[in-house]
Design a protein around this nucleic acid. Structure first.
Lengths: 197, 197
DNA sequence: GCCATAAAGATTGTATACAATATTCCTTGA
DNA sequence: TCAAGGAATATTGTATACAATCTTTATGGC
């Protein structure tokens, strides 16, 4: 219970009753989610949980890779020593989480790592946009970490990003971060293919 | 009249009266604009036209350059012969508009050119995102075309993009498109600097 | 038996009324 | 005279009622 499925119709009165408010704030929230692209609003039909197709997800990952690469490139040029230290500390936390063998723990630390990377570009708008896209694809990315060996690979890919940033090598950092995301796209394709669909 | 200024407070009842509807649809529209980032919503204060600072605009242009470069890179790989022909036709229309000496005419054709480029990447999500950012910065970009010689330079920069795409050279196309946007950022800085602020 | 059409029901979109909060201006005291 | 506090006003946030539109179901005709 509580979990909602893609394509599900979001009934306004039901939600209003569920949260103990009137339809008005519910409608405003749904409208926000609509413009954010999380739900689909069809005229006189209401709000539906956006059903993200595989093609669309691949498209989003393609853009994601570009933005993450850009963040890393700029971070290599702009991050202060203190910021790099902080990023490396989070990276160490990732290591601990990876060793613990708990995918959820790693997921949480991984989140922190990416947020720190986004902030490191010193471009507030880019940080926002990358964060939004990250948020929008997180559900699907979380599945990835369940794949055997993915956590270890993810960690070593982070390593490459951190090293390039510390070395002050923008091109290298960009490539490492971009590949880190693109690999997830490929893995996802494998995952989908393995479902026989 | 009719034009609104950055930072201006958007009165709900005034807008409702102006458009002959109640506050409800006005509120929903403002909320949409809020999540789109075009207006700023402060709690219990209402909606204000987003005041985009110079720093923020530079940040947006930086991201814009990356996305446009990505579009061009993918377009060089994915555009069909027919699409390239269409892009070139729009480019010719730009030439005609440039020759007419009317900045507004060129502005319109320039718009078509960029939209065609966005569509050429064959990534619907990227096309959407690039279009949104384009829309959000258009007001400021329009000023650029008033600068002497900018229309001619813009046109020759387009030329480089079209040639690279026709040649099927992704790296070249990416660089050309990226530089095309970045130059606008630099010109804008010049423009701001010339104001003595 | 099946399809088309119309009526009934359900759900979204809009308007209006009321409550909550912020702003402004006036009063009062030092 | 200026500052602080409070009341009055204005504006946003929420609830509810009504209108418009879509969906479903039942009925009639072929």
């Amino acid at each position: 219970m509580g979990t909602i499925q893609p394509g599900q119709h979001l009934d306004e009165v039901a939600l209003a009753g569920r949260f103990g408010v009137s339809r008005t704030p519910i409608r405003e929230a749904l409208m926000q989610l609509g413009t954010m692209g999380l739900v689909e609003m069809r005229p006189h039909r209401g709000a539906f949980v956006k059903r993200i197709g595989i093609a669309e997800l691949v498209e989003m990952i393609e853009v994601m890779a570009e933005l993450e690469g850009m963040c890393a490139r700029l971070a290599a040029r702009r991050m202060s020593a203190a910021e790099i230290d902080a990023l490396e500390q989070i990276h160490l936390d990732c290591a601990a989480a990876a060793d613990s063998g708990d995918p959820d723990a790693y997921y949480y630390e991984n989140e922190r790592f990416h947020r720190a990377l986004y902030a490191g570009c010193h471009n507030g708008f880019l940080t926002e946009e990358a964060g939004r896209l990250h948020e929008r694809t997180k559900v699907y990315r979380r599945l990835q970490l369940r794949v055997r060996g993915r956590v270890e690979n993810s960690f070593s890919e982070h390593e490459a990003v951190v090293e390039a940033i510390r070395a002050g090598n923008p091109e290298c950092a960009e490539k490492a971060a971009r590949d880190h995301v693109l690999i997830q796209g490929e893995r996802f394709n494998d995952f989908v293919a393995s479902l026989g669909e």
